[in-house]
């Protein structure tokens, strides 16, 4: 989790501030946390329970649980580390309940997972959109000017913050912010046509 420099103060953390605002009733702040982390939470749960048919339900449970217990998040603990622990507990709870049911009933259908169902349960339409979309993202990244691509990769692959990227590529921090924004917007322009069908189903 990266921290930024607070104006006139020490380091602060955007996620922590979003949590503070959510605690004070700003639901948009919590919604932003959901948008930021829902894929990572779902991916984590998918890896643990390995059943596509329960991933969404459990992911919802994780965020409801997090919302109810925002006051339990201690200062200095990264939101991702905290919600990731909730996800692990939620997945473990599901697996324990499932094992109990299997032990009690010996349900044949409950004992084995279909390897073909280990991904998200996607419709044929979703599969086509996804293939085109991620191909468009790869293509758009390849077409980026080198400076934009380098800044974006240093951010997303190497996990560097803007200050570290600025030091690495030898440009001011504000330029890094602009390079990364322009990279994302260039990619976004290429992928938006593939997302028209799902716009009504996004935040």
């Amino acid at each position: 989790m990266k921290s930024s420099t607070k104006i006139g103060g020490g380091p602060w953390n955007v996620d922590q501030e979003l949590v503070t605002r959510a605690r004070n009733g700003d639901i948009t702040a919590f919604e932003l946390l959901v948008v930021k982390y829902q894929r990572r939470v779902a991916a984590q749960i998918r890896g643990l329970v390995r059943r596509a048919d329960v991933v969404e339900e459990l992911t919802q449970e994780v965020f409801l649980d997090a919302y109810d217990h925002l006051n339990d998040l201690r200062e200095g603990v990264a939101f991702w580390a905290w919600i990731s622990a909730i996800a692990r507990n939620t997945a473990s709870g599901y697996l324990r309940r499932r094992q109990h049911r299997v032990d009690a009933k010996s349900e044949p259908g409950e004992t084995q997972d279909d390897p073909g169902q280990l991904q998200f349960a996607a419709s044929a339409e979703q599969e086509v959109i996804a293939q085109q979309l991620f191909a468009a993202i790869d293509e758009a990244i390849a077409e980026l000017p080198a400076k934009q691509r380098d800044a974006l990769m240093l951010r997303e692959i190497d996990g560097l913050n803007y200050k570290a990227i600025a030091a690495t590529v030898g440009t001011p921090v504000n330029t890094v912010r602009s390079l990364i924004y322009r990279a994302r917007e260039s990619i976004a322009k290429k992928v938006r046509p593939h997302l028209t069908a799902t716009r009504a189903r996004r935040w």
Binding site: R40, A42, T59, I129, L133, V191, L195, R202, W203
Partner: peptide, 21 residues
């Protein structure tokens, strides 16, 4: 965020997922 996740290796559409949460 979709682009961030995709570049980071999580390649999943958000087809109503966030909205349902």
């Amino acid at each position: 965020q979709l682009i961030k996740d995709a570049v980071g290796g999580i390649r999943v559409l958000d087809d109503g997922y966030t909205v349902r949460i």
